[in-house]
Simulated scan of single mutants.
Amino acid sequence: MEKVLRMASEKGVVIFTKSSCCMCYAVKILFHELGVIPVVYEIDKDPEGKEMERAITRMGCTAPVPAVFIAGKLVGSTNEVLSLHLSGSLNPLLKPYIRSSALA
Results as ranks from 00 to 15, higher is better:
1 M>P: 10
1 M>V: 13
3 K>Q: 13
3 K>M: 12
4 V>Q: 01
4 V>L: 08
4 V>E: 01
6 R>G: 04
7 M>D: 03
7 M>F: 12
8 A>Q: 05
9 S>P: 10
10 E>H: 05
10 E>C: 03
10 E>D: 06
10 E>M: 08
10 E>N: 03
11 K>T: 05
11 K>S: 07
12 G>D: 04
14 V>N: 03
15 I>S: 05
15 I>C: 10
16 F>Q: 03
17 T>S: 11
18 K>D: 02
19 S>C: 03
19 S>K: 08
19 S>R: 10
20 S>D: 11
21 C>M: 08
21 C>P: 07
21 C>L: 07
21 C>Q: 07
22 C>M: 13
22 C>W: 14
22 C>F: 14
23 M>Q: 12
23 M>P: 03
24 C>T: 05
24 C>Y: 02
26 A>Y: 11
26 A>S: 13
28 K>A: 04
29 I>C: 00
29 I>M: 02
29 I>W: 02
30 L>E: 02
31 F>M: 11
32 H>A: 05
32 H>L: 10
33 E>I: 02
35 G>S: 06
36 V>D: 00
36 V>W: 00
37 I>C: 01
38 P>G: 00
39 V>Y: 08
40 V>D: 03
41 Y>W: 09
46 D>T: 07
47 P>V: 15
47 P>H: 10
47 P>C: 13
48 E>V: 13
48 E>H: 15
48 E>W: 14
49 G>M: 00
49 G>T: 06
49 G>Q: 02
50 K>H: 08
52 M>R: 04
53 E>P: 00
54 R>E: 12
54 R>P: 04
54 R>Q: 12
54 R>C: 05
54 R>S: 10
55 A>S: 13
55 A>I: 09
55 A>R: 03
55 A>E: 08
56 I>P: 01
56 I>F: 09
57 T>G: 02
57 T>C: 06
58 R>W: 15
59 M>K: 07
59 M>R: 08
61 C>K: 04
62 T>G: 07
63 A>T: 12
64 P>E: 05
64 P>G: 00
65 V>R: 00
66 P>Y: 01
66 P>N: 04
66 P>D: 00
68 V>N: 01
68 V>G: 00
69 F>L: 02
71 A>W: 03
72 G>E: 02
72 G>M: 04
73 K>N: 05
73 K>T: 05
74 L>D: 00
76 G>Y: 04
77 S>I: 07
77 S>G: 13
77 S>L: 07
77 S>W: 05
79 N>Y: 13
79 N>E: 14
79 N>V: 14
79 N>G: 11
80 E>L: 12
81 V>M: 08
82 L>K: 14
82 L>R: 14
82 L>C: 09
83 S>M: 14
83 S>V: 14
83 S>W: 15
84 L>C: 12
85 H>P: 12
86 L>W: 15
86 L>S: 13
87 S>C: 11
87 S>Q: 13
89 S>E: 15
90 L>W: 13
90 L>F: 13
91 N>R: 14
91 N>V: 15
91 N>Q: 13
91 N>I: 15
93 L>H: 12
93 L>E: 09
94 L>G: 08
94 L>W: 03
95 K>H: 09
97 Y>L: 02
98 I>Q: 06
98 I>K: 09
98 I>S: 07
99 R>M: 10
99 R>G: 06
100 S>W: 14
101 S>W: 14
101 S>G: 06
102 A>I: 09
103 L>E: 09
103 L>H: 08
